[in-house]
Amino acid sequence: MRKLLGRTAFAAVSLAFATEAMATEWNVSLWGKRRAFTEHVEKLAELVSEKTNGEFTLNISYGGLSKNTENLDGIAIGAFEMAQFCAGYHRDKNPSITVLELPFLGVTSLEQEIALSKAVYQHPATQEDLARWDATLLMPSPLPQYNLVGVGDAPTTLADFEGLSVRATGGIGAAMETIGAVPTSMSATEVRQAMDSGIVKAVSFAPHAHMSFGTIENGKWWTTNLNPGTVNCPVVVNTPALESLPEAHREALLGSVDEALAYYVDYYNNQTMAAWGPALEERGIEQVTFSDEEIAAFKEAAAAPAAAAWIEENTARGLPAQELYDLVTGMIAGES
């Protein structure tokens, strides 16, 4: 009996160790709070857990692991296994993907933004660029065109932006500069305080972020059709962590990306955008629409010079910048 109990106990311990060995937990660094911008990561965690019967879990943290501007650094040192960041937070660290932030590219849907991002992410030069940080690009966080919420007198023409301090990162900031605005780059979590204190008079965001970070709580006006561009905010994983995953767990992760993105698009289009109009109306925010002629002039002033400068700067870095730009613009032209 003692031998039988001994073998039973040994088997139980062995099973416990085996179960523990099969379990995988990853830490995921996001910021702010759960919102449309993070729904694909939340969905991915749900799908991965389902497909692995709970053996692979993604522990999502909203700001508890790192500052949003330092998430790529955290990935590089293996402080956590997955993170989201925005290219414009540190353009020098990820110059290849900033091609997707150039102003007035003409992207018209979240689905198109996903296709463009995937194409750029799969380019060898982009993968080599992110490999410097031990980062593998997993999926984009597609966002619609940005517009401004501001305080003070609403601009009625583009000339009214002269001297206006605006929170705008990446290519959007460069575009705003061409019409005389003074762009300031700051992370999303710093925006409300900067707006309340008068450091910036207007903020460039996608609709979900205007709601999530409170700019519409004291904003007086909103530009409906400035549409200078968007930002690119990928979700990345630590490459050694990805490579060390058991095959079934890796398949569960990579095989869930498209479903997570489809869920995100549906959520953004049908929930976030449905709430946006009423949120503006409830607060009496004035909606400012510019003429076709002014938008055309804005595009002419901003688009070509920004693209030329980006190509020159990043060719000097050793990137195939013209090739990346042609990849993006060629895909957009092919769909238009």
Score class of each variant (00 low, 15 high):
W133Q: 13
L116S: 07
W133G: 10
P142R: 05
R192Q: 14
Q122C: 05
S197D: 14
A125N: 05
P124N: 07
W133S: 12
P124D: 14
E128I: 10
K118D: 09
A202L: 01
T156Q: 13
T136E: 12
A119E: 07
K118N: 10
L116M: 11
A188P: 07
I179W: 00
L158I: 03
L116Y: 06
L148A: 03
D196T: 15
Y121H: 07
R167D: 00
P144K: 02
P140D: 11
D160I: 15
L164S: 01
V166E: 04
A131C: 06
A202G: 12
V182M: 11
T184D: 12
Q145M: 14
V200A: 04
D196Y: 11
M176Y: 04
A194R: 03
G152H: 11
A174H: 09
T169L: 13
I179C: 02
S187V: 14
A181C: 08
G150Y: 06
Q127A: 12
K201V: 01
M139H: 07
H123Y: 07
R132D: 12
S185Y: 03
E162I: 10
E128Q: 15
P142Q: 06
L137V: 10
G152C: 05
A135G: 04
P183G: 05
I199M: 13
L137H: 02
S197C: 00
S117A: 15
T126V: 14
K118A: 06
P155E: 13
F161S: 06
L130H: 09
Q112G: 11
Q193V: 05
R192M: 09
R132K: 15
T157M: 02
S141E: 14
T169P: 06
Q145I: 08
D160E: 12
K118W: 03
S117G: 15
V182T: 15
T184K: 15
A119R: 04
A194E: 00
S197L: 04
K118E: 08
S187K: 12
I199K: 15
P140L: 04
H123F: 00
A174F: 03
P183H: 04
E177K: 14
Q193F: 08
E111A: 13
Q145E: 12
S165W: 05
T157K: 11
D129L: 08
E128G: 10
A202D: 11
Q112V: 05
L138D: 02
V200M: 03
D129F: 06
D160C: 11
L130E: 10
L158Y: 00
L158E: 02
A125C: 11
Y121S: 04
D134G: 03
T157Q: 04
M195N: 09
R132N: 15
L158C: 01
Y146K: 05
T184M: 13
I114L: 09
A115N: 09
L138E: 05
T156R: 13
V200I: 15
G173T: 03
S165H: 15
A115G: 06
